[in-house]
Amino acid sequence: MYETTYHRAGSVEEAVKLMGEADGGKFVAGGQTLIPTMKQRLAAPDSLIDLRHIADLKGISVDGANVRIGAGTTHYDVANSADLKAVCPGLCSLASHIGDPQVRHMGTIGGSISNNDPAADYPSAMLALGATIHTSKRDIAADDFFTGMFETALDEDEIVTAVSFTAPDACAYSKFPNPASRYAMAGVFVAKGGNGVRVGVTGAGNDGVYRWSDAEAALSSDFSAGALDGLSVDAGDMMEDLHGTADYRANLVKVMAKRAVASAG
């Protein structure tokens, strides 16, 4: 790891101020992606501004169907929230399958969506749930937040503070994890609720997370796995790498979508 200067922020305002004073700084939340990336010298921020000790960023509140999750909430806490499980079990299940137990103890929902790794799990859920991403500057609809691989609408000095959404009537996530890394080779989050049916796909698309509109249309008239039988995914839109061809991923997206619908019921 190259040299860096560590700063611990006590509040969101302080973190923004520290970023303003830094020359090429990075916010670090759980650090489960950033620290390994820095160790490989693929990232070399001159300053690290630690958000993990900001109490305001933590916690889950569920009020009826209104859910708000602080950006600093760990995957472990999302996975094990009884309140959240009661209204949106699909999101708890998603969080319980990110990385491994040690990563889930550190990694946060805010960090995951801010990094927008094309194989991260949370972004698909944010799209499918029609979530609002709250930041230190504004509120952004998930549809406008994820703008491409590792790209988001965030400014350099903008911090995700929370996500909120209305719990759907039914939802589920199904992923095919890479056998070695456990990152999604295709992960599909399906949600059925007041917004109709929304389908978020991660791990597969060649421009990062996306909504599968054909599936949404088919499932809106018939919410069953069979409704997807006649659809196909264009391999031209899929990622291709040593882990799988575009054709393979195109098939996986459909299989994962069907499994998600079947388990959402």
Binding site: V28, G31, Q32, I35, P36, K39, D50, Q102
Partner: peptide
């Protein structure tokens, strides 16, 4: 491994198991 995968470095920080190769000492202070 030093790449956050093998878990040989697991310790408990404030009661939770974490990979100590994936956290700065300053973060844990």
């Amino acid at each position: 491994c030093d790449t956050s995968q093998c878990g040989a470095c697991v310790v408990h920080v404030d009661g939770k198991a974490v990979k100590s190769c994936t956290m700065l000492a300053a973060q844990a202070s």
